[in-house]
Nucleic acid binder design. Structure first.
Lengths: 358, 358
DNA sequence: ACTGATAATGCGAACGTTCGCACGAACGTT
DNA sequence: AACGTTCGTGCGAACGTTCGCATTATCAGT
């Protein structure tokens, strides 16, 4: 363990008081050019860096941001985690901050306790939340405590806090419109339960697009369940058993896992995905492009979201932007079109393109 | 932002000096039962928690561990990241520590600078490294600086430091032996370049297993390249074009992405994976089980590794276990057998099982 | 009744910064 | 020549802990 260098040592070596060294380093005072040079030289020679702990004790700030997230089950990896984290780390580091990551606890009491601990011990200056739901206990707690935070995702409309969210409705609308353009008319949806805020936002785009095309989807087309492979498989199987007249020729799915399950079900039923039945996903899971056929999916601008969340939080912490109205900032996803959503009629099959957001 | 509660306020309220409160809270002194009760009551009423920054300034420790990792490219997610991080967060929190995560910089100078910054400002007490390679600059730097760290992965044999690694050789040996047991004799390998330490460890198992079966693989069977879908596809295509007499009937791959590429190439060549050609992967990427056919793969005990790394580092930091010999701790992976590695001869096709490590 | 141990609590200092104010010297102004 | 200004630097205090030692009160033993 290397020896620690303090202000006092730099001061001794350059022959001034340690307070003067501090001021020179922070550019808070003008001293004789010669003195300044001596100080900087001592700093260089000793390789001095201000002790972060002492600095934050004095400043009453930790220059640290807390972040915790719900882990994905092992058989269903979070496709955006790595990018999201790195984008935040970069944005934070550029402004002298770091992220303190802490474990997720499924028990609500225990979870709030984690946040409280980090707040009360002054270990972090603010939090980033993700996966926000209706009446999210973390949101309610932090609002009540008036502790700074930003969120990836919205909650109840009446809860006002700084947040950024993907316009999931727009994403699903792009997917649905794309299928309509391919000639599909009977388009089903594999969705989450109605208590899912994210799910409801996304479904709006489905309804909007169908409505604009003069189509009213019957209840049977809306399959709701857990967003996993198994549910996708079951739901698609049910859809394929509907009577000919209302059997869908396309399915939009609220995430890629359901889509992969649906693809499998279609194939097991002896049909060809992309020819007889079109399927779209959501998230653009990395491996989705390597499936057979490659999966059409909606991609979120994850890096941008991470960067902007951090910028938003730091602006609040540094009070450059204190009491603005906290509207949710919506960012637009893009549709990545691959073979799973082509049809015989369309002619294109192996073509691959990206339909950008407006 | 809630008001901060300090020792002094607790002291005022319970009528003793603040130093006494500190000692009582830390159990360092015995006081009259009645006084103690008054103090604890004040602590409860004010919801006092010791300021972490002040505590670490005094203790000259940050109770924080630094971790940074090389991000996976967006089209190729890291399958174990989420679990690995959560396992470390949990293990650390239980002992009063947290992880400070910082960005990865591909430029070596810049990267070392990140580590140096966190060390010299005393923001962290130690580091966790992952993805360690031969002559890893981080390892060399931290060893030279004598700064505490533990690593997931080995480096050069002569560099001694506390580390845990998966016995990748054992994993590949399990895969190869499994294929041999299915009746395969011509088994190719999709590997990384020879400067990959992890790759070389894994390949040892391949050679060991083949050698034990009296087989000497010709050079053509060993395909080396980047561990990605595209390379897997190309390499498998080349292998299938070998003359009949030496054309492999099975391929072990050093990761799942290459395996998925190989599967695709085999299918595009009009052959059936699991019937005419067997393929195995490595990492047990979540979506691997949903592929057609589901992929046989080698699974690492990620949670255990994360927990043990943190325990190892904290023991070193708390000097319970200072100067032991730093042997690399090897943990055993397991082979998850699915349909991609069955053959016609074997009869079993849809069976799914886990072959545990010894 | 005096000594010496033990128990209960207080006090000062220190960890390494940053910040506000004070102080002396040099200088120009009246 | 006396007086304000400006410049360059030093000093003391504070952030909230913990730690060692000092101090007082309590009590048993001679």
């Amino acid at each position: 363990m290397p020896r620690r260098v303090t202000l006092k040592e730099v001061a001794t070596r350059s022959g001034v008081s340690y307070q003067t060294v501090s001021k020179v380093i922070n550019g808070q005072v003008r001293v004789a050019a010669e003195t300044e040079e001596r100080i900087w030289q001592a700093v260089r020679e000793l390789n001095y860096r201000p002790n972060y702990t002492a600095r934050s004790l004095r400043a009453q700030r930790s220059f640290t941001i807390g972040y915790s997230w719900r882990p994905s089950p092992p058989e269903q990896a979070n496709p955006i985690l790595d990018t999201f984290l790195q984008s935040m780390f970069h944005a934070a580091e550029q402004r002298g901050y770091y992220l303190l990551c802490f474990p997720y606890h499924s028990d609500t009491q225990r979870q709030i306790e984690s946040y409280r601990e980090l707040m009360d011990t002054r270990r972090v200056d603010g939090f980033v939340l993700s996966g926000v739901e209706y009446n999210d206990p973390r949101v309610l707690f932090l609002l009540e405590q008036k502790f700074p935070f930003v969120a990836f995702g919205r909650s109840n409309p009446e809860l006002r806090f700084p947040s950024i969210d993907v316009d999931g409705g727009h994403g699903l609308r792009l997917a649905t419109e794309h299928l309509l353009a391919q000639g599909h008319r009977r388009i089903a949806a594999l969705a989450w339960p109605e208590d899912s805020r994210v799910g409801n936002n996304r479904m709006e785009g489905y309804f909007t697009a169908l409505h604009a095309a003069g189509i009213t989807p019957p209840a049977e087309w809306i399959q709701r369940g857990e967003g996993r492979f198994a549910f996708g498989y079951q739901a698609a199987t049910r859809l394929l058993q509907l009577p000919e007249s209302m059997r869908p020729t396309a399915m939009v799915c609220l995430n890629d896992y359901m889509a992969v399950g649906a693809v499998k079900a279609v194939q097991d039923a002896g049909l060809m995905v992309g020819r007889q039945i079109a399927v779209t996903g959501f998230d653009d899971t990395p491996i989705a492009q390597y499936l057979t056929p490659p999966l059409t999916s909606v991609r979120q601008p994850v890096w941008e979201i991470g960067e902007r969340l951090i910028a938003l939080l730091l602006n609040i912490l540094e009070a450059k932007n204190l009491a603005t109205d906290y509207e949710t900032i919506l960012v637009q996803p893009e549709l990545v079109i691959r073979a799973s959503s082509q049809t015989l009629e369309s002619g294109v099959f192996a073509r691959k393109e990206v339909m950008s957001n407006p």
